[in-house]
Design a protein around this nucleic acid. Structure first.
Lengths: 228, 228
DNA sequence: GCCATCATAATTGTATACAATAAAGTTTCA
DNA sequence: TGAAACTTTATTGTATACAATTATGATGGC
């Protein structure tokens, strides 16, 4: 919600930390999130851990299995399509709104974001680069001054990171930078219509770069299929 | 999520029950939701109550105040505008999708929904009528076969109910029925473009029927203003 | 040797107890 | 009499203990 982070040890702080770890692919889909284990890591009791896991569960980043525990979510092909469908409804129009309100400072902040993303890539920190790439979309929503939509996009972006972890085909460098650069150009030109169109196409490109064929080999699902 | 309700006594069941009560205006904005009190009502411990309240908090239906407790949320004017802005991005296009997939059974179900709404109004159960009126929108999202978007719309509809409780001007009968009837006609004609346009205008009508002037007298906020 | 069944261990689900904080009421002093 | 400070009370925040369920490993029969 707000930029200033919560005090360490609170459920919100733990949830934010876990969400970032998930977003950066340090916690891959399917990872078991034991309550005792997390409690020991963060030096808190299970009560607080459970609150954090419940929060992430509401955001569809963690999947709860009855009497089994919490696991980093593994979005299905269907869920993946739905997430990007939702993004395609929200983000293009939000980019339009953001463009109309955007200040020079906003544009500089976005540019700095991309620079940091490049720096992370050069440093071999692909997880951090992916995180920053997602934040770019969230920042645009924030600049549209629509906190409700921003919250929704934030959740969708994090879920997208899980989808990318599962269905990304080309492990090569993220070609997103080009699309983000083009968006900034539109912002500089104050061309809201173009920004909307660019965002729409950017999301379309993202979806088509995924391998969303039905019942493809999904890591971790094989095991579950055999368990039955 | 799924139609079949959870076992009574679980956090999900309590949250669903509270959400419905809020949606039906049996729990007005600002109502204190004491943990001990709720625990006694439902015959469960505070642990489960807290899980339910956290869930509602994440859906923005309940506002948590540090060391003060949980209260039924009181959306601000700004939040009200944002909620309907988000709905206007999601629902028209979703109505379009739903129209293209809609079966005759679906249409009959929607018609039954409206009939039940009318019956509730005739019986003087305005809260239940409002609830059913909101469910109408959620049912359409379900028929679009987009569960992710459905979840989002469901939250926005519930929040809209709070907004209506705070900012509704005309206490007269809900004029929504007309708009809903028109939507069904479009579904019958399989006119997706028309359905999209009707939904867009329906949401616009809803917003304009609210009194969203800044710093108008909001029930319950007066007290807080004086408390400082 | 393999499979089924049972016992054990580990983990989550739930309730309760204690600590911390804030509200309210009381007392005291000006 | 009024206001400020203190005490009391009530409520939430956190941790811990117990119960229920499931996974795992062992044992025995086929």
């Amino acid at each position: 919600m707000n930029e200033l982070q919560s005090k360490p040890g609170t459920a919100d702080a733990v949830a934010a930390d876990l969400e970032r770890a998930i977003h950066e692919h340090r916690l891959p889909p399917g990872t078991k999130l034991g309550e005792d284990e997390l409690g020991e890591v963060y030096g808190i009791s299970r009560t607080t851990v459970r609150a954090a896991l419940q929060s992430l569960g509401h955001r569809h980043l963690v999947q709860h299995k009855r009497n089994r525990g919490a696991f980093v979510a593994q979005p299905t092909v269907r869920e993946a399509r739905e997430v990007f469908e939702a993004r395609s409804l929200l983000e293009p129009r939000t980019a339009h709104s953001a463009c109309k309100r955007m200040t020079d400072d906003n544009i500089r902040a976005l540019q700095a974001h991309i620079d940091a993303e490049h720096a992370a890539l050069d440093a071999g920190e692909s997880g951090r680069a992916l995180y920053l790439s997602g934040r770019f979309h969230i920042e645009i929503a924030r600049m549209a001054d629509q906190s409700t939509i921003e919250t929704m996009i934030s959740e969708l972006v994090s879920r997208s990171s899980l989808i990318i972890a599962l269905y990304w085909q080309r492990r090569a460098a993220l070609c997103e930078s080009q699309a983000h650069h083009a968006l900034i150009s539109a912002f500089v030109d104050r061309d809201a219509e173009l920004a909307e169109e660019l965002m729409k196409n950017h999301l379309l490109d993202l979806v088509t770069s995924l391998d969303l064929r039905n019942s493809s080999s999904i890591p971790g699902t094989l095991k579950e299929a055999l368990a039955k």
